[in-house]
């Protein structure tokens, strides 16, 4: 599209080294964001251990104890974060919500990452019509209003945790495919790939042994950023009532509930709100850190 790319500020990655340097693990941990990591470990820990450490059954209704405030706002340690309109324990529900967020987030990122990376490898390596087909499909999926399509699909297939995961995989693989394809195109021109071709390696072997290891770093960085995006989307869908169906507690669902009690019991919105914000912020900070560590293009910064 241009005859003179020398003055375009966009093409800085062209002459970058491809093979990542290996350094000791200790060195790699430099500048590790401790606070975000701690928050994430708490979320993961409570999510996994929820059934054991929950102070109450998260779905146990106790109408006599409804809308209790959290500790510090006239609440008691009986319900540290208060109770909702049905008297359910907010802390216990928050732990259940963490479980769902993590389950959906990780499953979707694994699924979409695998699908996206596979298609990117095929498109970038074989070029030709395979590339055209995959690239056009990628464009289509990136061009549609994501949330609108996602809720329509969920509406059509019915809301359940399994369906939610499948729909979100179906809707998010394209982001990986777009970014990783250009990585593959970069790597496949490298000398060691040409050498492998000359040496008579099969395409499958070249893709798996030579190209894949070189796109793992951007894949990890991308997956981290996507994880927080997926958690937000899951929360949005649950907020709309199109995510994981009730009575299962989800952060989005708790927010939707709480919204009706704004001005009556604000903690019902603020508590799950803080949970979502803190989790996503922590994942993003971890992602930024990983990007600086893993992506050679950002190393000079």
């Amino acid at each position: 599209m241009t005859t003179d790319s020398s003055s375009l500020p966009l093409d800085k990655s062209v002459a970058e080294p491809i093979a990542p340097k290996r350094a000791s693990w200790l060195h790699n941990l430099r500048g590790l964001p401790v606070v975000p990591l701690t928050i994430l470990l708490i979320v993961i820990g409570t999510g996994i251990l929820a059934p054991i450490i929950q102070p109450h059954n998260p779905n146990e209704v106790d109408l006599l104890a409804s809308l209790r405030p959290p500790v510090g706002f006239d609440g008691t340690w009986e319900h540290p974060l208060g109770t909702d309109e049905l008297g359910r324990d907010v802390l216990s529900r928050l732990m259940d919500g963490a479980q769902i967020s993590l389950l959906v987030g990780i499953a979707v990122v694994l699924g979409a990452g695998t699908l996206g990376a596979t298609l990117a490898l095929l498109a970038g390596y074989f070029r030709g019509w395979v590339d055209i087909l995959i690239s056009r499909a990628t464009d289509t999926f990136l061009a549609v209003p994501f949330l609108l399509v996602a809720i329509s699909v969920v509406g059509a297939v019915g809301a359940s945790t399994r369906n939610l995961i499948l729909v979100l995989i179906f809707m998010t693989w394209a982001g990986y495919a777009r970014v990783l394809r250009s990585e593959v195109l970069r790597v496949r021109e490298a000398d060691f790939v040409r050498l492998a071709k000359v040496a008579g390696c099969s395409p499958a072997r070249i893709i798996i042994r030579h190209i894949l290891p070189n796109i793992v770093n951007p894949l990890i960085v991308l997956a981290t950023l996507q994880l927080s995006a997926v958690i937000v989307i899951e929360a949005s869908l649950s907020f709309l009532g199109l995510g994981v169906p009730a009575p299962q507690a989800t952060w989005g669902g708790m927010l939707a509930n709480g919204k009706a009690y704004l001005g009556v019991q604000n903690s019902l919105t603020i508590v799950p709100g803080i949970a979502i914000a803190a989790t996503c912020l922590s994942i993003n900070l971890m992602g930024d850190w990983l990007r600086v560590r893993l992506d050679p293009r950002f190393r000079q910064l």
């Binding site: 604000n266 709100g273 996503c280």
Partner: peptide
């Protein structure tokens, strides 16, 4: 903050 806090959360906080 823009990246990490979902827009619907911002919306609810604004209302609050």
């Amino acid at each position: 903050l823009g990246q990490a806090i979902p827009s619907f959360l911002i919306g609810i906080m604004l209302i609050l």
